[in-house]
Design a protein around this nucleic acid. Structure first.
Length: 655
RNA sequence: GCUGCUGUAGCUCAGUGGUAGAGCACACCCUUGGUAAGGGUGAGGUCGAGAGUUCAAUUCUCUCCAGCAGCACCA
């Protein structure tokens, strides 16, 4: 007879993480169970997980289950603390600013937010007041109580409270779904919010390690046609040490901001007169060119041909491709559409241009696949609030390519592209930092469902073959093709799309592309769009933040500064720079009348130059150099000849 | 585009209803110094643009432009 049958009807079996099983009366709470294990555990318990799902400590257990007790040191405690902090903040706001409506307030990475509807904006001083009130509410130690409400009662209650947004939320909940409210505090004194939970036992459990960080606008339900709400962000942690560490981490990350480093390192600047366009300084342009040269070598290695197409084309191409309908507002159109029969526009992407090259002449199946690369300079009129340093500009260069191929060639081509992308990201030190998004058909799209099925299946098969981690991003494909997007993050964790692979079965038809098949009949090629860096500008921004300005030697704008300790070594230093340049090293000379401390600080801390050769009378006499590598405190003295040979070798870019 | 904030010297920032100040950078001088800021002197500003209020606006108000944070968008 199995043990399970011995369990009486009014009892349940609880399995603990160590595998032990105990029997309890039905309806026993996690808190009671924790108490049977030890008093200290009951005290430390914050919540439970029931079959892996987080739940209130006070939740009665109705069925046999696997149970864990969540304590403050557990990772799950963080999201509880943050979610509760959001509730506490909402209560604080309503106490301080009566009439403010609450909407939603989830926990997010590193913290939480709550969206409020209020006529007046929240000021920075308001944040201080709110935070102070939050600490009082935490101090009160009000109990969180879960209540199940009747749908109509809940709607009536929130209507009476003037909470239109909560009413809308409840009305939109599927029929039959349990409507749970959480009360913090006792009876009518308590503050009620619609919430799925779970929560901590009391507000006191939130602790003191939180801080309100910023106030910003956010649309109701993420929809720009709906009301703009005031969102207050906060961060919350298990203890003050964690909070301090977080604030410190943010501060450090902000020092890596590419806009800040771009100025300090003299790489580029922006001006009001050219919004979203880069003024590249000599040093920044050196990085740009080094990266482009590298990409050109890669593309050659992978059997691409490089082409170049016009910057400015008749809008008929965009109308034909469908971009005009969807992106007209974001294109720079050069002539008045009203008066000109053929308005021209700056190209926002290179696809139609490359298609013209394909269409020039007759393509045989023997010519396929054609891998056509173009470092295309494109222009996109971005919404004013979207521009962001190098990451989102209005004029940029894509390391674009279009592969035209047959159905049979499709998958291998995409796999080979993934190899190339992986190779490039590895060379650039970013391989471990990419997220791949598989973005499938959007609601607004062109083409038949059969074609979308085929294109998505092809990408799915490739993903199965390449064995890289990926995330499904349903509905986020381009209007003409599903895609794999390669996402990188900046210093403070914002995500930026860099590489992309798009399997397109629509443009070839739209742009009248064909090839002659073995049977002599015309056939439609497939078109794969791909970019590896994406935007060269954006990728440099990401690289700067990733390396905190300390770019790998081969990309560093200045690879070596030869600096003198005394004027007596000027001639020697000049000679060294000349020799370095002969070996292809980007070297500069610093014989200014300054102390060596000053020069070291300027080139290392500020300029991020990877290598310094320091020379004085001694080195000039002995034909040596004192080598200082960025990041290391000490230096080594080497003979000039071997120092140059070694450095020249280290500066070689990857092939 | 939306909400909020910001715009003063090349950079980072202070300041004021009576037309401006610091540090760094720059120029010159002193200093020739051995690994993360040596000292002195000097030059440098239409206070984002336009309009309004005022005897007087860099300062107050409005509009526009640009930037920052977040949201929305991103072929």
């Amino acid at each position: 007879m199995s043990e399970a049958l011995l369990v009486q009807e009014d009892q349940i079996e609880v399995t603990f993480p160590d595998g032990s099983v105990k029997t309890f009366a039905k309806g026993t709470t996690g808190l009671t169970i924790a108490g049977t294990i030890s008093k200290s555990l009951a005290k430390a318990a914050l919540a439970v997980t029931i079959n892996g799902e987080l739940a209130d400590l006070s939740r009665p257990l109705e069925e046999s289950c696997a149970l864990t007790i969540v304590k403050r040191e557990d990772e799950q405690a963080l999201s509880l603390i943050r979610h509760d902090a959001a509730h506490v903040m909402a209560q604080a706001v309503q106490e301080l600013f009566p009439g403010t409506q609450v909407t939603i307030g989830p926990s997010v990475e590193d913290g939480f937010y709550y969206d409020f509807a209020r006529d007046e904006p929240f000021s920075t001083e308001d944040l201080e007041k709110i935070e102070k009130r939050m600490r009082q509410i935490v101090e009160r130690g009000a109990t969180f109580t879960r209540e199940i409400w009747d749908r109509n009662d809940a709607i009536a209650y929130f209507k009476k409270q003037g909470e239109q947004f909560k009413v809308e939320l409840i009305e939109d909940l599927p029929e039959g779904e349990e409507i749970s409210l959480y009360r913090q505090g006792e009876g009518d004194e308590g503050w009620l919010d619609l919430c799925r939970g779970p929560h901590l036992p009391t507000t006191r459990h939130v602790g003191t390690a939180f801080k309100l960080t910023k106030v910003a606008g956010a649309y109701w339900r993420g929809d720009s046609s709906k009301a703009m709400l005031s969102r207050i962000y906060g961060t919350a942690w298990r203890d003050d040490k964690e909070l301090k560490a977080y604030l410190n981490r943010i501060e450090e990350a902000e020092k890596r901001d590419h806009r800040k480093l771009g100025k300090e390192m003299d790489l580029f600047h922006f001006q009001d007169e050219a919004p979203g366009q880069v003024f590249w300084h000599p040093k920044g342009w050196t990085v740009y060119v080094a990266l482009m040269d590298y990409m050109r070598r890669k593309v050659k290695k992978y059997d691409y041909v490089e082409v170049n197409t016009p910057q400015m084309l008749d809008a008929r191409f965009w109308k034909k491709s469908g971009h005009w309908d969807k992106y007209r507002e974001n294109m720079f159109v050069l002539e008045d559409e009203e008066t000109s029969e053929h308005p021209f526009a700056l190209k926002p992407m290179s696809c139609p241009g490359n298609a013209q090259l394909y269409n020039y002449g007759i393509v045989s199946y023997r010519d396929l696949p054609i891998r056509m690369a173009e470092f295309g300079r494109v222009f996109r009129k971005e919404p004013s609030g979207a521009r962001h340093g190098l990451m989102r500009v209005q004029a940029f260069t894509q390391d674009d390519a279009h592969i035209f191929c047959t159905d049979e060639q499709l998958e291998d081509e995409v796999v080979s592209m993934c190899d190339l992308i992986r190779e490039v990201y590895t060379d650039l030190g970013m391989a471990d930092h990419i997220t791949i998004n598989f973005s499938t058909r959007p609601e607004q799209r062109i083409g038949s469902d059969e074609d979308w099925d085929r294109a998505e299946n092809a990408l799915q098969k490739v993903l199965d073959r390449i064995g890289m981690k990926w995330v499904l991003n349903p509905g986020d494909g381009a209007f003409y093709a599903p895609k794999l997007d390669f996402i990188l993050t900046d210093a403070i964790g914002r995500e930026w799309q860099c590489g992309t692979i798009q399997v397109d079965m629509n443009m070839p038809t739209r742009l009248d592309m064909s090839y002659v098949a073995p049977d002599g009949e015309k056939a439609r090629p497939h078109m794969i769009h791909r970019a590896i860096l994406g935007s060269v500008e954006r990728f440099i921004g990401v690289l700067i933040e990733h390396y905190a300005g300390k770019l790998p030697l081969w990309l560093a704008p200045v690879q070596c500064v030869v600096a003198t300790v005394t004027g007596k070594a000027d001639d020697y230093a000049q000679d060294i720079v000349k020799k370095l340049k002969e070996q292809g090293v980007r070297a500069t000379l610093d014989i200014r009348n300054e102390k060596i401390n000053y020069k070291v600080r300027e080139h290392s801390a500020v300029g991020k130059v990877p290598v310094m050769f320091v020379v004085g009378a001694r080195e000039a006499e002995e034909n040596t150099v004192a080598i200082r590598r960025l990041g290391s405190k000490d230096q080594s003295v080497e003979s000039l000849e071997s120092a140059i040979t070694t450095l020249a070798q280290d500066c070689k870019p990857p092939y």
